[in-house]
Design a protein around this nucleic acid. Structure first.
Lengths: 152, 152
DNA sequence: TATTGTTATACTCTATAACTATA
DNA sequence: TATAGTTATAGAGTATAACAATA
């Protein structure tokens, strides 16, 4: 029927969009948006980053980081701390509740993986994971950083 | 670093978003948006469908179909023809230029597949395709229909 | 003069409701 | 009354430009 239905690029895009939707739904169940999760995990991954550095690491514009940090700060998950080295900049710190919600979100990932690959054997899941990592690597994608945070 | 970087769901979502972006870029080079391509291929796949039937097939709301068909009609790629059976409805027909642009777009897919899987052997590409199709099947995804057309 | 964070504005895409003409 | 197509409005999300404080 559809000429693209069996193409690798379409299958990747189709299953990827579905995975992203499930990911977002699971996160929403614990009150977290995908972008908030992305920022929280980036803060946790590299310590003491400013808003500009976080925006660079996630490939997004610093303008969009402002409202995102506003929201996370309002929820008590991060703190803005004036940098001693550069008093224009804020260093973003994860609070204990922020770390807890990040841990909680991450703990849900294995179940999501299992649900997505429900029809595959453990061996096939491992193969799929390895092949996808090779595609990601070959395409120059940054590990752990989702392209959707980049905008257009 | 990032706790999710190696999870199957994140890898699928990450590589899928990248594939969708490349797909959109290649389509843009020939003046086609991803949604326009989706509608054109759905018209070609099942003949003589109304706007409502197209919206159902693609999982989108009929309100959003109006502007989409307006655009395709303005480009001369489709025609609205009053249905004889139900004079409220339009049957959407692909014009020769519409069929040509769809063929042109589809002809670009093999190169996109090759670029995405540049680091994989032909055997690995086949394995990846089979595993992705099994995931898509297990998740109940409609062949050839992209979840992004559905909205939220 | 350049950069960090911020705000304001416009543009796109989507969601919802209501209208018309047919059934 | 129910449905197909249409229109209008509001809401997200993003892009661009400009501003104040600091470098």
């Amino acid at each position: 029927m559809h000429p693209h239905a069996a193409s690798l690029s379409f299958l990747l895009s189709q299953t990827g969009a579905h995975a992203a939707r499930l990911f977002a739904e699971r996160l929403a169940a614990i009150g977290v948006t995908p972008r908030a999760y992305g920022v929280l995990s980036s803060i946790a991954a590299g310590g003491g980053q400013t808003q500009q550095q976080l925006a660079d690491a996630l490939g997004m514009h610093r303008n969009n980081m402002v409202g995102l940090i506003d929201d996370l700060e309002g929820r008590g998950w991060v703190r803005r701390v004036r940098s001693d080295e550069d008093r224009r900049a804020f260093t973003i710190e994860l609070t204990p509740p922020g770390q807890a919600v990040l841990d909680h979100a991450a703990s849900r990932l294995p179940q999501l993986d299992a649900d997505l690959a429900a029809g595959l054997s453990a061996a096939d899941r491992a193969i799929l994971g390895r092949l996808l990592r090779r595609v990601a690597d070959g395409q120059g994608l940054t590990p752990g950083v989702h392209p959707h945070l980049r905008g257009r």
